[in-house]
Design a binder for these strands. Structure first.
Lengths: 114, 114
DNA sequence: TTATTTATTCTACAATATAGAATTAATACG
DNA sequence: CGTATTAATTCTATATTGTAGAATAAATAA
């Protein structure tokens, strides 16, 4: 078992996307969510690789979607955070928040939604 | 020249510390700032290695402190963000903020200082 | 059985993260 | 001067994350 370290920057974005998407989180939607909200490019490889690693660490769990989506195309693999993953996520977000809180100029996105 | 990617998680913490510390940012204070605020362990090696990389990318600049601190011990190397570094920092923080904003449970630290 | 669609897997390499011992540089003192 | 003490940075090595995109898989439609 690898030593549990802090979540990486991209891992944090992925985890956040999982929460936002709820029960509709799978490869394609996760990718869209990050590209749209974070305005940041996300290649397929980067995303799936990261999801696989998060699952190895037991920070997320996955389940295959129904085999007959009656629409053509491969089955989706849905992801969700595990309690363990959530704990790490909270810790990382907390650290970032503590360091970023109150930094004048821009962090407009970090202040109230106002 | 290496391709300019997104800032890593630790890089973000270090950059934030630089802003918080202003003209008193050098190895030891940066380390304390992160350990205290982010409540996260920071080894010396990790910090200096990261600072060196940020400087290579021209995201931070450094200058040696006075040669006679009249207190014993080696001279300090002060760090500060460059405009280029600040732009990248803003982008990274913006992406994170966009993904984390509104996530009910925790990001209390990311909402208004209230 | 072939084409089309949707989504995931694979493979490889680059960059960041992390550790801690080693080293450097300055002052203090006998 | 030579040695101890103090404060800080550098070095070296390895592990983990980040990134890309081609390849593959699996289902439906003709």
């Amino acid at each position: 078992m690898s030593k549990s370290r802090n979540l990486g920057e991209f891992e944090i974005l992925v985890m956040a996307a999982l929460i936002r998407l709820g029960d509709n989180a799978y490869g394609v939607t996760i990718r869209q969510e990050i590209e749209n909200r974070a305005e940041r490019a996300v290649t397929v490889g980067a995303l799936y690789t990261t999801l696989a690693r998060l699952e190895e660490k037991d920070f997320v769990a996955s389940r295959m979607g129904e085999a007959t989506p009656e629409r053509g195309g491969r089955a989706k693999r849905y992801f969700e955070m595990t309690p363990k993953g959530r704990a790490h996520f909270e810790r990382s977000v907390s650290s970032l928040g503590a360091m970023l809180k109150g930094l004048r100029p821009w962090p407009k996105t970090l202040r109230s939604g106002a």
